[in-house]
């Protein structure tokens, strides 16, 4: 049976697993339960209590932390009386000489611009949903963009990279952390918390329902 663009069987819409294409009835899941694909085990939906409010506050926190992480001093290095303070911008500009300039752009995108764009898109999508209002114009596009950018948002990889670099220089110099380091570390924790409380399926569904 067809209802507009949807397939209905016994009045229920069908969804398919994005990983293996297995058909399932559109799940009606109580909060804090998880629906997984019967064939491949992929999580299909995992709605959480107060998820939108949590996602919204965590994404906003992440943007604020990112501002701090970029503009405050990041790490200070001291050896033989010489010292050098590094900011995230300095790390980005490390490749700015000659042929490697494009890599500076890429690093800026991966660790600052893409994460910020993604958080902004998520805030834009979720903001009206928190109060059960009509989504903003272009909310679907914004959330599609956020999903597209997800693998390219590498703030957490950067912070682990910092730890590896510190192990390498630990022998020859004294290292001290600036406020930006803690902001960036906090950002990583917040990103993980936010990704865990965000159920994509529920967001798509709410966007569709609130649009009407």
């Amino acid at each position: 049976m067809l209802d507009g663009d949807k397939i209905l069987i016994e009045g229920r819409a069908l969804i398919a697993c994005p990983q293996c294409d297995m058909l399932h009835f559109e799940p009606d899941i109580p909060e804090d339960h998880t629906a997984t694909c019967i064939r491949c085990g992929q999580v299909l939906a995992a709605p959480r209590t107060n998820a939108y409010l949590r996602v919204l506050s965590l994404a906003t926190t992440a943007v604020i932390l990112m501002v701090g992480a970029v503009f405050f001093p990041f790490i200070e290095l001291e050896a033989a009386g010489l010292h050098n303070t590094t900011s995230v911008i300095d790390a980005i500009l490390a490749f700015s000489t000659g042929l490697m300039l494009p890599l500076s752009f890429a690093v800026a995108m991966l660790i600052v611009l893409i994460p910020v764009t993604r958080f902004a898109a998520i805030i834009y999508t979720v903001w009206p949903l928190v109060r059960n209002r009509k989504p903003f114009a272009g909310a679907s596009e914004a959330f599609r963009l956020a999903e597209f950018l997800r693998p390219w948002s590498m703030a957490e990889i950067f912070i682990v990279g910092v730890s590896v670099a510190l192990v390498k220089v630990a022998g020859l110099a004294t290292v001290s952390f600036g406020p930006a380091f803690w902001a960036f570390a906090g950002l990583v924790v917040v990103t993980v918390l936010q990704d865990n409380s965000m159920c994509r399926y529920t967001i798509w569904k709410s966007l569709e329902q609130n649009r009407a």
């Binding site: 033989a80 790390a91 670099a165």
Partner: peptide, 25 residues
């Protein structure tokens, strides 16, 4: 795992930004 390989590039970026100690290193 794919994304995590980028860590090498970040390590190089941080080391290059950090270790600029004039004549020492």
């Amino acid at each position: 795992i794919g994304r995590w390989s980028m860590i090498d590039v970040f390590v190089v970026a941080i080391l290059s930004a950090l270790v600029q100690l004039g004549s020492v290193a």
